[in-house]
Design a protein around this nucleic acid. Structure first.
Lengths: 348, 348
DNA sequence: CTGAAAGCGCTAACAT
DNA sequence: ATGTTAGCGCTTTCAG
């Protein structure tokens, strides 16, 4: 029969150090206003017993939990994992923990997660909402009554602050660049056209080709390599095949590139390629792939900073509506010229 | 002067529903043994007030926190983010939350994180230790007195269960494959030779070339593209240049590939290439890169499952030493034959 | 500089 | 089926 070893508590420490609980509490909270001798004695006991304060008790007393929640579609996605990394760093610098939950863009899971996070009394939430319009989610967040920051995708017509890349401008820049190269039939390929980011990029593309009086060639059916290959094949079989492809997301870019390779279509000689979102090997492949680059880590960092700003603001008004200044931070994107769009290989 | 809206508590619900606290407690814990009428009434009040149980209070009563900690070097690393994704899914299926902290392989941060996680009374820990030998970390984990599972890297000579890939066997398989192709001068390139995984792979390589009476050509200095290019250049300038390169980690593979491309060295005609760890574009580049693939998500999944196994085991003995069966799970790796090693392009 | 005591919100005997 | 009550471990007035 082994005695169940309980974790030592503050009062055990107090007893063993022959002081009151108040004193121990003072010691573990900075040791101010405590006699150096007592301080030392208490510290020794703490060490001996291996005492660790119980956060739950503190929280119960009304403290912040020093915990923030991050709700993203997937951790494995390079975009979101980079955001998470940056957010975690900021959380750490504020002495807080980051709880990551994945939603897979499923509104039901989203609500559920908000709920669980609220049971745990997270101090605030960073979320990439599956649906910018969802009233249900809006409601859940409002009930949560903690600061919320939207990441990568805003809540439309809401006062919830958002940190997003300027997808519209990025897509315009990309499309314009292809136009400047002289391409006349620029097809835009993507999947998940309902996501906020994608639709913004589509809008930028459409606007730009229309302004240039060029045809708007949109294919939103790319789900996997198979569909990309199919799309590429069929578009090249047309009487007026496209001379450039603008892909709106990472995976689509890769699928399209693979398909073009497999079909032995020279890039950019026959068809140019420009992708949205940079990735590690874009520079290593032949030809190197030109892309629109977004400041991924920045997005995560700024979102977390905004959240802690709200958290640290003098606590009048606890509700989302009150703390939110409704700011939407749009981060700039950059065009990285490599070879696939027809640009000469850059220096370096 | 806005009244500070406090979160409603269980007793407020009880008051408003004109029942005792026990009843409300029963309701939020499944609603068993409660009169249907009362149940309905209480539920309505809960709804109205927007009540959410305070997890902290439950924890204080001795419940599990339903929270597990994951300590990894980086979230942005594709390997670890995939592990995290899998672990998060398992946690969710056990109604638990995943707290992710990054250590950047810094032992100090590691200890700190364990400490914070223990304040928060996480139910268990999954950790990829920076140093398999560290006694300090071992001590901290022992004090933590919760189940621990090692991920990707074991604690040497410890009873802490570990889930790792069979790095040694993987490297042997890779090296042997190159040998079978007829290469005689196989150079092994990598960075971070002190990491457990890398050193295991080095051991596998060394063992295999030695068994084949081939020279052991090891370069552990690859930190970035620059150093890779330098390494490739200088080794090809030698009187007996290598005819194959075995890279031990993802980034090294990419650097080496880029360098080979830039220097216009035909792969595999002049030098073959085989990498450890698969990555998304390995199949898309020309030539496609052969790799050793490890079951990444599996590692994360099994580690989490092991942890929950320990958590759910009849709770006698709380300490690491007692719950651990000292099992070390080694997952098999696979050779993916693509073109860079000299294999003919596979079907499909 | 130090201690006693009152809860924070919840669960779990123990009553009724 | 439901209510009463005693803490869980900590912080925090309020007195010494």
């Amino acid at each position: 029969m082994v005695k169940k070893r309980q974790r030592p508590t503050l009062s055990e420490v107090a007893a063993k150090a022959r002081v009151g609980t108040t004193t121990v509490s003072r010691v573990i909270n900075g040791g101010h206003r405590v006699d150096p001798k007592t301080l030392a004695r208490v510290l020794r006991v703490i060490e001996t017993l291996g005492y660790t304060p119980n956060q739950a008790a503190r929280i119960l007393k009304g403290d912040r939990t020093r915990t923030i929640g991050l709700l993203i579609p997937s951790i494995a996605d390079p975009f979101f994992s980079s955001c998470a990394e940056a957010a975690q760093a900021i959380a750490r610098s504020h002495d807080s923990l980051l709880i990551v939950t994945t939603t897979h863009n499923d509104p039901k899971i989203e609500i559920e997660s908000v709920d669980v996070l609220m049971r745990h009394r997270s101090d605030g939430l960073i979320i990439a909402p599956a649906d910018s319009e969802s009233q249900t989610l809006r409601g859940a967040l409002h009930r949560a009554a903690v600061p919320v920051v939207a990441l990568d995708r805003p809540f439309s017509g809401s006062s919830i602050p958002a940190v997003v890349a300027d997808n519209y401008a990025g897509a315009k820049m990309a499309t314009q660049h292809l136009i400047d190269h002289g391409y006349k039939r620029i097809v835009c390929m993507t999947g998940e056209p309902n996501l906020y980011t994608i639709s913004e990029r589509m809008r930028g593309y459409r606007k730009t080709v229309e302004a240039a009086k060029l045809p708007c060639l949109l294919d939103t059916s790319i789900q996997d390599y198979k569909s990309a290959e199919h799309a590429v094949e069929s578009m090249l079989a047309q009487p007026h095949p496209p001379d450039a492809i603008f892909t709106l997301k990472n995976s689509t870019t890769i699928f399209a590139f693979e398909a073009l390779q497999k079909l032995n279509i020279p890039i950019p000689a026959s068809v140019a390629l420009l992708g949205y979102d940079d990735f590690e090997l874009a520079a290593a492949v032949r030809p190197s792939i030109s892309v629109i680059q977004q400041p991924i880590a920045e997005i995560g960092r700024i979102a977390a900073e905004l959240l802690f700003d709200a958290l640290l603001r003098p606590t009048r008004g606890e509700s989302v509506a009150e703390h939110a200044i409704g700011q939407q931070i749009q981060l700039e994107t950059h065009l990285i010229r490599r070879s696939s769009c027809g640009c000469p290989p850059s220096a370096s």
